[in-house]
Simulated scan of single mutants.
Amino acid sequence: MTGGIGCVQCGTRSNPCRCKVVGPTLGVLAFAVAAIVEWPVGAVVYLFRHTKGRRIMGHPSTVVYPKVSNSIPI
């Protein structure tokens, strides 16, 4: 769930409170920064190599957000 201040992920078992706020919020911020850089690069690469361009454009959502969000347990 995304709110005005941050993101909240409830139902997780990574901490005793069963809710995460810091990890998902930083994950969204890292996703945005990576997307600003990688989406234009992926679009240019897509013109010549379709599969590689798609993989570059999907990198923020498949790698960056999950790694950042899961690395912070609160």
Rank of each mutant, 00 (worst) to 15 (best):
G53Q: 05
E38H: 10
C7V: 12
C17R: 15
R54Q: 11
I36H: 03
N15P: 04
G27P: 00
T51R: 14
E38D: 04
C17W: 15
R55Y: 05
S14W: 03
R18E: 12
R54F: 13
M57C: 09
M57K: 06
K20L: 13
S14R: 07
R54A: 14
V44I: 14
P40V: 12
T12P: 05
P24Y: 11
N15I: 07
L47A: 15
F48D: 02
G11F: 08
L47K: 13
F48R: 15
A32H: 03
V45D: 00
C7G: 01
A43F: 11
K52N: 02
G6T: 07
R13Y: 07
L26W: 11
L26I: 08
P16E: 09
G6R: 14
I56T: 09
R18G: 11
C19Y: 12
I5C: 14
A34E: 00
T51C: 11
A32M: 10
R54S: 13
T25M: 07
I36W: 08
G53V: 10
A34P: 01
V44S: 10
T12Y: 08
I5P: 00
A43E: 02
C17L: 15
V8G: 01
T12V: 12
V44Y: 12
N15A: 13
A30C: 13
M57V: 01
V28G: 00
C10Y: 05
P40A: 07
T51I: 06
G6H: 11
T12D: 10
C7Y: 03
E38Q: 09
A32N: 02
I5V: 15
P16T: 01
V21A: 09
S14I: 05
V22H: 03
Q9K: 10
V45G: 03
L47I: 10
Q9P: 00
G53S: 07
G27K: 01
R49Q: 14
L29A: 10
H50K: 15
K20N: 14
V37F: 08
